[in-house]
Design a binder for these strands. Sequence first.
DNA 1: CATCAGGGCCCTG
DNA 2: CAGGGCCCTGAT
Length: 324
Amino acid sequence: MMKTLLLKEKKSLVLKPIKPFDFDSSVHNPSHYPSPTEFYEKGKFWQTMRFKNKLLGIKFENKGTVNNPKIKLTIYSKTKLDNKFIKEIVNELNYRFELNKDVSEFYNKFKNDKFLEPILKKRRGMRNKCGHSLYESLMIYITLQNATVRRTVQMMTNLLKKYGTLLEFDGKKLYVFWKPEKIAKTSEKQLRELKVGYRDKMFIRISKAFADKEIDELKLRNTTTEEIFNQMMKLYGVGKQSASYMLLEVFHDHETLNHISPWEGKIMSKIMFNKLVSEDKILKEFEKRYGRWKMLAFTYIFTDIFWRKKQGEKIPWLEKEIRL
DNA sequence: CATCAGGGCCCTG
DNA sequence: CAGGGCCCTGAT
């Protein structure tokens, strides 16, 4: 039986993101798999965080508007945190949720674009968040490979139950990720028992790379796109698809778009051409239309359709492409 | 009941 | 550089 770690200490402060900032579409992404490490409802968001080996609960509450954004942040912890550490957490959250990223140029440039015009109005202030660290994101991407959403959730839950920790804060119980060392030391057999299949080796080898400090996320943030991509591709179990995602999601690169997976291709094809076209054709269209903003444009268009579905719009062709 | 493909990747030829 | 095989699961 796993014990629950109760986080009783809390500290609240107010964050002011750069405007425009839309709370809901920035803290939650409906195209992502439902992660057992976070919980969202309108105007509120909770997630766990392992940061510098402290286990934390994070809560965001919307206290502002798109043009006058204000977030009440509450940090839950087991023991009291000092101000310096709180500041580091805030900096990290700013990075992960793109709170201080100015994308006004993007908004100005494409306000008359055929595809972006309605989206920039409806989703005005949407950011591209990634609540997880690089290591955690890699773990998730391994479970996404060659699996349906349901199976991904099953694998992640099994892993979190066995290697993670259940945290309780603000009446929520959510899992937090394990340290890389923990899985680096485990056996393939033990992982297979969690129904992860052939991914066992990938978890172990990537965890080893992190445990041995072969990869430094903070250093990578200050290198080039090529360097990050190459480093990712060296990891066992990471190919073009996952490496590209890391650039956008973890490193917030809004420009690089050099690969589109088949299922995303089908969806984007339908939206832009209303028929199935090749990956190459989509890539060329994005390059031509959006230039150095092509990746951000891609996520805006892609995420928008998932929000429309979440908000009750019936999109029959989309249902077929999302397998649960 | 059997067969199959899935929100990729590695490895082989 | 194309294609088979991979763990497991739910769909058919």
